[in-house]
């Protein structure tokens, strides 16, 4: 009897331990990552900075400088060849910037670089007022808000506020001087952004060096990609599709919105493929990894298939249908990425 009594006495006590164990389940953190997984996350964060962000911003700085030089040359000798060279340099720098959209978190957004480089829409009133004054002095340029400078300010003057795009000889001295000042301002901002990420005390080192929780850096990367997909879907394509107004297309002066969104998705692709992030996702959840590969490929294909000039597409049903299809694919990809990101916490 005695042993039975003892065990009977212990059973209820043991059963009462269950609530404590179960109650803990509700608020306890999800199963923490293993040391190996933390190492893999840290490697992704380091590769992201070293292989994607720094080369990407390096290219932006170099192309922005090239644009500034082309604008100087245009101002000195305004002719068709130099105007074309300046437009090509603008498009190349723009491509670098849009590719970097997914890593705009950090200094781009918190130190004003994004605003100074890419504010939108253009403050046409102030820009027209400034261009009507001759000469456009550095002091006058400094008074312009960010919406009358940056990529889109340069774009509006290089391509004209409305069609047809101006010929070189139609550009006024004030416009040529503005382009010079805006080009050098853009190059300075691009260099500043690169420098903010560079070096042992730069944002890149802090970002990649989150030794205590490298998974957080992966979450940041995923959130950056997700934000880009959402912006492309809702703002760059969805808004003009709803309004059918070409002026709601970002980069509508040059008609290069499609190139912008292709570059946006190319940046995501770089982040997934050049850092080991896709493999990390696959290792953690193979099904989610495969879904992301498929959904992303579909989204990229559909934006690549969009007509180069989206303004024309807004006017016809077939064009709008292709934009809708692209949005649908991007949204699907965003949903998959959201699910993956939530899994990271």
């Amino acid at each position: 009897m005695a042993p039975f009594s003892r065990s009977r006495g212990r059973l209820p006590s043991a059963l009462l331990l269950i609530p404590l164990l179960l109650a803990g389940c509700g608020s306890a953190p999800p199963g923490g990552p293993s040391a190996a997984e933390e190492d893999r996350s840290a490697a992704v964060a380091q590769a992201f900075v070293a292989k994607v962000v720094l080369p990407g911003y390096g290219q932006l700085a170099q192309r922005s400088q090239q644009l500034a030089e082309r604008l100087d040359q245009l101002a000195a000798h305004p002719d068709a060849r130099r105007l074309q060279a300046a437009r090509e340099a603008w498009a190349a720098a723009r491509r670098s910037w849009e590719t970097a959209e997914s890593w705009a978190f950090g200094p781009a957004q918190t130190q004003g670089f994004d605003t100074n480089l890419d504010d939108w829409p253009v403050n046409e009133k102030d820009l027209r007022t400034a261009l009507a004054r001759a000469p456009v002095s550095p002091a006058l340029f400094a008074q312009l808000t960010s919406t009358a400078r940056g990529f889109h300010g340069i774009e509006a003057v290089l391509y004209g506020f409305s069609a047809p795009a101006p010929r070189a000889e139609q550009l006024s001295p004030a416009q040529l001087r503005y382009l010079q000042l805006a080009g050098h301002d853009l190059a300075r901002q691009s260099r500043g952004l690169l420098q903010a990420w560079q070096g042992p005390s730069g944002f890149g080192a802090r970002f990649a060096g989150r030794g205590d929780n490298p998974g957080e850096a992966v979450t940041e990367i995923l959130q950056g990609m997700l934000g880009t997909l959402q912006e492309v879907s809702a703002e760059k394509l969805g808004k003009p599709l709803a309004s059918r107004s070409p002026s709601d297309l970002e980069s509508f002066y040059s008609g290069t919105t499609q190139a912008d969104v292709v570059a946006n998705l190319a940046g995501i692709q770089e982040g997934l493929e050049r850092t080991g992030l896709q493999q990390l996702i696959n290792r953690r959840d193979g099904a989610a990894g495969r879904a992301l590969v498929e959904d992303f490929a579909m989204a990229l294909e559909r934006v690549r298939q969009l007509p180069k000039r989206l303004d024309a597409s807004l006017a016809d049903a077939a064009g709008r249908s292709r934009i809708s299809a692209a949005i649908e694919a991007i949204d699907r990809c965003a949903t998959t990425l959201q699910r993956i990101s939530e899994g990271w916490g």
Partner: peptide, 21 residues
């Protein structure tokens, strides 16, 4: 008495588990 303990042991964790969630 044993059954009472068992019942308690089942209900309490369940309620605490639900509360925690």
């Amino acid at each position: 008495r044993w059954l009472l303990w068992l019942l308690l042991a089942l209900l309490l964790p369940l309620s605490l588990f639900l509360w925690s969630w």
